[in-house]
């Protein structure tokens, strides 16, 4: 309850000079301002969250372009990617500032009030962030790393869901040099294995995402299979192998139902 509402509401007995309706009009002004304030804040946050989603999608495409670029261009691509990531990050800072207005705990409490409005952008950002992080380090970005990046409480479920999307982004990478598919394959397999062990009730949307991951994994496994066979035949010709991998992925994509992308 806002402070205003309390002040308005404390003198409970109806003043004799005021009708009940007039008295109600006064108390309802306080409710109205509380609702309006929350609505205003919600709108602002939704706008930011949408911006985050859009920019994150762009960053993911940017990373894809880099991953398939010649090695010389990759470093620059990663650096640009980092800049873009910082740009998205600025939106989170803005949201945090929005949440902190009128709060004495830095907006922590408000974060949970508007969590549902933030979660869409957050998930997409985590996907982009972990993708970029993977390309930079070949590692899975730890939850703590992301929380540090956001300096807030991006929840574990968002992390898990963002991570689940990441496996889909990694799939096209498997057309890279011939050791990449095998590494991606084992990475995605690990993620799937661990996610399978999570009780479905804990992360509501994980079920569907796991299906996506399974599809991605099957495609990558097909690529690896084709690659292994070709490796025997053309082990001394990396250019041929790369083309083979690309073709294998295209075939896998044709065979299965459409993945995300």
């Amino acid at each position: 309850m806002a402070d205003v509402a309390m002040e308005e509401a404390v003198p409970a007995p109806i003043a004799p000079t005021m009708t009940r309706r007039e008295h109600l009009a006064k108390t309802f002004e306080a409710y109205r301002s509380e609702l309006d304030e929350a609505n205003e804040r919600r709108e602002q946050i939704i706008i930011r969250s949408r911006a985050i989603t859009q920019l994150s999608k762009k960053l993911i495409f940017h990373c894809h372009r880099g991953a398939t670029a010649p090695p010389a261009a990759r470093a620059k691509n990663l650096k640009d990617g980092r800049d873009k990531e910082r740009e998205i990050h600025a939106n989170f800072v803005a949201i945090r500032a929005q949440l902190a207005i009128g709060a004495d705990d830095g907006g922590n409490e408000n974060f949970w009030q508007f969590k549902d409005r933030i979660t869409g952008g957050l998930e997409e950002y985590i996907e982009a962030y972990t993708f970029l992080y993977y390309l930079e380090t070949k590692e899975l970005a730890p939850l703590a790393e992301l929380q540090k990046a956001l300096s807030d409480e991006s929840g574990a479920p968002d992390y898990i869901l963002g991570m689940s999307d990441l496996t889909g982004e990694l799939m096209p990478l498997s057309t890279g040099d011939h050791d990449v598919p095998l590494a991606v394959c084992s990475f995605v397999r690990d993620v799937k294995l661990i996610f399978d062990a999570i009780p479905p009730k804990m992360v509501p949307k994980l079920d569907r995402k796991q299906e996506e991951t399974t599809r991605s994994l099957e495609k990558i496994e097909k690529v690896c299979y084709a690659l292994r066979l070709r490796l025997v035949e053309f082990g001394d010709k990396p250019e041929v192998l790369k083309t083979m991998a690309k073709r294998a992925l295209e075939e896998a994509n044709m065979a299965g139902p459409e993945g995300r992308e």
Partner: peptide, 8 residues
């Protein structure tokens, strides 16, 4: 992931 799952 174990860290994330523990938290969840």
């Amino acid at each position: 992931l174990a860290a994330a799952i523990t938290q969840m």
